[in-house]
């Protein structure tokens, strides 16, 4: 844990900050009437083989303080041929904005609903369409000098979709916390919108099972999970975003099928 804090502190000395986080999200909302077309892909190497999850998403700025996103999830977790396994909607409402020159503080509340067609619940709540779930959270983002810091607290509850015959631990309720940091590597000086932006991100993602047992044969568990997300983000023409990242398990005792996940994401922003 100490070296994670040290890593975040080191980032603060390196350059200008950006907050378009890969694993978490900032408290900022999308511009009004802007559209984001996004496709996330996650790749998992497990003892049972290679799995993927493809997650197309459309985001829309309904109001200057309110963003809504709809998601679909396509994977090969339960069928090697691939199948649509879930749909979801997420919302964010910004409740506080304090802007200063090249700096800001923002606070937002978030909500999320996912409906899974083929639930595969587990102790580690991935939040990636493998279970039907409802989430609510609060996120605070601040630029402190040259460091963009964001903290998020999320409560998630499993909704239906569990099967008592699973025979393994399933989290019914989970508390997640995320601390994210990012900085801009290139360009050194902004000159025009066509410059390629390169950002590096380091995010810490924690999760605690709140002890709710979804399988009566399982013992009550208060297991915990610590992940570190590292990623790079390229932004072309201030519109097209390409992200390459990995999420690594760095501690905890939660039962999970994989200890590393690799991300390749693409987003195109339309300003209207």
């Amino acid at each position: 844990m100490r070296w994670i804090i040290l890593f975040f502190l080191c980032l603060s000395t390196l350059g200008y900050a950006q907050e378009l986080f890969i694993f978490s999200e900032p408290a900022s909302t999308m511009p009004k009437r802007a559209v984001a077309l996004r496709i996330n892909s996650r790749h998992y190497g497990t003892p049972s083989g290679y799995f993927y999850k493809i997650n197309p998403e459309i985001g829309y700025g309904l109001h200057k303080n309110f963003t809504a996103r709809v998601n679909g999830f396509y994977s090969n977790w339960a069928n090697p041929q691939g199948y649509w396994d879930a749909v979801g909607i997420s919302t964010k409402y910004k409740i506080l904005t304090i802007d200063e020159h090249h700096a800001h503080k923002r606070l937002a509340v978030t909500g999320r609903l996912v409906y899974s067609f083929q639930p595969l619940p587990m102790e580690w709540m991935m939040g990636e369409g493998n279970t039907s779930m409802a989430s609510g959270g609060i996120v605070y983002t601040q630029l402190i000098h040259k460091l963009a810091l964001s903290g998020k607290l999320i409560y998630s509850k499993l909704l239906q979709g569990w099967n008592k015959n699973h025979g393994y631990l399933i989290s019914g309720e989970v508390l997640e916390w995320q601390v994210s940091s990012g900085f801009l590597v290139l360009p050194i000086h902004y000159e025009h919108f066509k410059q390629v932006n390169v950002n590096l991100y380091a995010e810490y993602l924690g999760q605690q099972n709140l002890g709710v047992i979804m399988d009566e044969r399982s013992p009550a568990s208060y297991s915990i999970n610590h992940d570190l997300g590292l990623g790079t983000q390229l932004i072309f023409a201030s519109r097209l975003t390409l992200e390459l990242a990995c999420r690594l398990n760095i501690g905890g005792n939660m039962d999970r099928p994989t200890h590393s996940t690799y991300y390749l994401n693409l987003e195109y922003r339309i300003f209207r």
Partner: peptide, 11 residues
């Protein structure tokens, strides 16, 4: 005020 990236500037 509040701008921190070129995407924000573009919006």
């Amino acid at each position: 005020n509040g701008l921190t990236c070129s995407m924000c500037n573009l919006s």
